[in-house]
Amino acid sequence: MPRIRKVTVSTDAQGHTAGWVSTDLEAALIAKPDPGAAAFFDLDNTLMQGASLYWFARGLAARRYFTARDVARFAWQQARFRLVSEHTGHISGARDIALAFFRGWKVEEVERLAEEIFDELMAVRIWPGTHALAQTHLDDGQRVWLVTAAPIEIGRVIAQRLGLTGAIGTVAEVSDGAYTGRLVGDLMHGAAKAVAVRQLAVVEGLDLRRCAAYSDSANDLPMLTCVGSAVAINPDAALRRMARAKGWQIRDFRTARKAARIAVPVAIATGVAAGAVLTMAVRRRAAR
Rank of each mutant, 00 (worst) to 15 (best):
R244F: 01
V264A: 11
G247N: 05
A263F: 02
A274G: 15
A263P: 06
G247T: 02
A263R: 11
R241C: 01
V264R: 13
R257G: 08
R251H: 11
R254W: 14
G275M: 09
A267F: 10
I250H: 05
A276T: 05
V272C: 13
R241A: 06
V266N: 08
G247C: 03
R240L: 03
I268N: 11
A243E: 04
A256D: 07
V264Y: 10
F253R: 03
L278Q: 00
T270K: 13
P265D: 09
R261V: 08
P265V: 10
L239S: 04
L278M: 09
P265F: 09
A260I: 05
A243G: 04
A273G: 12
R254E: 15
A245G: 02
M242W: 14
G275Q: 03
G271R: 04
A263Q: 11
K258M: 12
A273I: 09
L278I: 11
P265W: 10
R257M: 08
Q249Y: 00
M280G: 04
G275V: 02
Q249A: 05
M280R: 11
V264D: 05
A256R: 09
A238L: 08
R254H: 13
K258S: 14
A259D: 04
V277N: 07
V264M: 12
T255E: 13
I250P: 04
G247K: 00
I250L: 03
Q249V: 02
I268W: 06
A259L: 06
G271T: 05
G247H: 03
V277C: 10
Q249E: 06
G271P: 11
A243R: 04
A256K: 07
A263W: 05
R240G: 01
F253H: 10
A276K: 14
L239P: 02
V264T: 14
A274T: 08
A243H: 02
A243F: 04
A259S: 12
Q249P: 00
W248R: 07
I262R: 15
